[in-house]
């Protein structure tokens, strides 16, 4: 609890001189939710892909502390080892559930596949765990043999969350997890995420352009513009007392519902 689980220093992946992710440094602590906000093209999704090993950095360091407390430099880790980390230590929740699910295998199969990936072989156990996870994310366990292809967008997203969390990851990456959903479905998903993150004590990095999502889920915020972090701090401090011109503009553009 006294050390960051992920430490990134000067991470850079430049598509053009002011596009991509440029010299970003950050720490993620166990059990905290770190929000990354900014408009489209600010580099926030690129940063997430770099930190989760889905894309390689041009330069910089990304140090991850695994379950055993061993530091692993992700930028120097071979792809096979990254894939293993992806199954055992990470969870990745994509904006589009189709990128994170197999739509033509059953809901139970989607959850079970992750379990088998970490060595679980007992069919009865796997099915029982899958059922309990469906309940956890508020999908009727009777749908266990249904294909996600026939699920609603909100259900697909909840299934993607179950598939990721079933293996007890220690760090979960989320890219606009509520992006394509109706507002009422979003609220339900956010509530589920908030509860699970709190109960399981996992660390989360969440990319969003929705300040409401950021306020609800994130403990701390980073604000990105043109590939760089321009402001950071406690979530309510950044949103209630923004200092950078761009952050003030972002906050001022939130619709006041009350």
């Amino acid at each position: 609890m006294d050390k960051p689980i992920l430490t990134a220093r000067e991470v850079t992946r430049a598509y053009t001189p002011d596009q991509g992710c440029l010299g970003v440094s950050l720490d993620v602590w166990p059990g905290e939710v770190l929000g990354i906000v900014g408009e489209s093209g600010s580099g926030k999704s690129t940063l997430l892909r770099l930190l989760s090993g889905q894309e390689s950095a041009d330069s910089g360091s990304i140090l991850f502390l695994d379950r055993a407390g061993t530091p692993i430099e992700l930028t120097e880790t071979p792809e096979s080892a990254l894939r293993y980390l992806g199954r055992t230590e990470f969870g990745i929740i994509h904006q589009n559930p189709r990128d994170g699910l197999r739509l033509r295998i059953s809901a139970g199969g989607n959850i079970g596949e992750r379990l088998m990936g970490v060595g679980n072989r007992h069919y009865g156990d796997i099915r029982a765990i899958a059922e309990s996870w469906l309940t956890e994310v508020e999908i009727d366990p009777a749908r266990i043999d249904g294909k996600p292809l026939h699920f609603s967008g909100g259900m697909q997203q909840r299934l993607q969350i179950a598939r990721n969390l079933v293996t007890n990851p220690r760090l979960v990456f989320m890219d606009e997890p509520t992006g394509g959903l109706d507002v009422s479905v979003q609220a339900k998903l956010l509530d589920t995420l908030k509860r699970l993150v709190h109960d399981l004590g996992i660390a989360v990095i969440i990319v969003t352009h929705d300040m409401g999502v950021a306020r609800l889920l994130a403990d701390r915020l980073l604000v990105m513009k043109q590939g760089r972090v321009i402001e950071s701090g406690l979530t309510d401090q950044v949103l209630d007392d923004p200092h950078a011109a761009y952050t003030q503009q972002l906050v001022a553009s939130i619709l006041q519902v009350n």
Partner: peptide, 9 residues
């Protein structure tokens, strides 16, 4: 008051 809570800097 908000500064005493760390809400304003």
């Amino acid at each position: 008051l908000k500064m005493l809570f760390g809400n304003y800097l």
